[in-house]
């Protein structure tokens, strides 16, 4: 079964067409990258997948549940991380993880928090208020929060933003291991092309709310006759500007 099925999805605001009739699927166990410049429609698409935003038209099915009618059943089995959404600053890291563990009805929560603390090197940070952490530490905590319920579908917006190269590489390895271990599906929006090349099986190139191209990273690179995905991204971004 596909983890995500999106059919003819449209979102328009009074003066903007943010997402323009896109359709795609993400199979269970797959990693799909959403690429596009600012305003391409990535965040809007993720928001609709999460049920934060109601589409103007089109259908979204997540883990077999219609998001329009049954989003809470899907939300129990998915999770989300974005450096642009914070965790309560006055709560300690452990308290934050405890809150989300309860929200996602995680069994043996103490054990799960200890597991995540070990995986993301958070042991020394558990008692510190989230607001006192560095940007990189906050990103690690947010990622730990996103895995607390062992989701079948993980939506990640810029998952390694603010991380130094070493920690970024560690997190990418963690995500690869998590996928291999659980067969979770991952949808990834990122501006880090090397990250997308490494993690994603397939990439959707978005521009002005439309899917302008898609394929595996290797196929896209070959199709555009380029050396890497960054050059492909620039080709597409500048195609009509030229």
């Amino acid at each position: 079964m596909d983890a995500i099925t999106v059919t003819n999805l449209v979102k328009h605001y009074p003066h903007t067409l943010a997402v323009d009739d896109i359709s795609f699927t993400l199979p269970q166990g797959g990693v799909l990258g959403l690429l596009g410049g600012n305003g391409a429609g990535k965040t809007t698409t993720i928001s609709m997948l999460l049920g934060l935003l109601v589409p103007s038209s089109g259908q979204i099915s997540v883990l077999g549940h219609d998001i329009a009618r049954d989003r809470f059943k899907a939300l129990e089995r998915m999770n989300f991380s974005s450096p642009y959404i914070a965790l309560p600053a006055r709560l300690s890291v452990a308290e934050n993880l405890r809150v989300y563990g309860h929200l996602y009805n995680v069994p043996e929560l103490k054990h799960r928090i200890a597991e995540l603390a070990a995986q993301f090197h958070l042991g020394a940070l558990l008692s510190r208020p989230a607001g006192e952490l560095s940007a990189g530490q906050k990103t690690r905590v947010a990622l730990a929060k996103s895995l607390i319920n062992k989701p079948d579908l993980l939506l990640l917006d810029e998952p390694t933003a603010s991380l130094d190269p070493d920690t970024g590489d560690y997190v990418r390895s963690m995500l690869e291991a998590y996928r291999a271990e659980t067969n979770a599906a991952i949808l990834l929006a990122s501006h880090n092309m090397a990250e997308v090349e490494r993690l994603c099986d397939r990439v959707l190139m978005l521009k002005a709310g439309k899917i302008v191209d898609q394929g595996t990273p290797d196929a896209l690179i070959a199709r555009y006759g380029r050396e890497d995905l960054e050059q492909v991204f620039l080709d597409i971004a500048r195609r009509e500007e030229a």
Partner: peptide
């Protein structure tokens, strides 16, 4: 800035 996390939880 936590509403985004809360409203995407169950």
């Amino acid at each position: 800035r936590n509403l985004g996390h809360i409203f995407v939880s169950p």
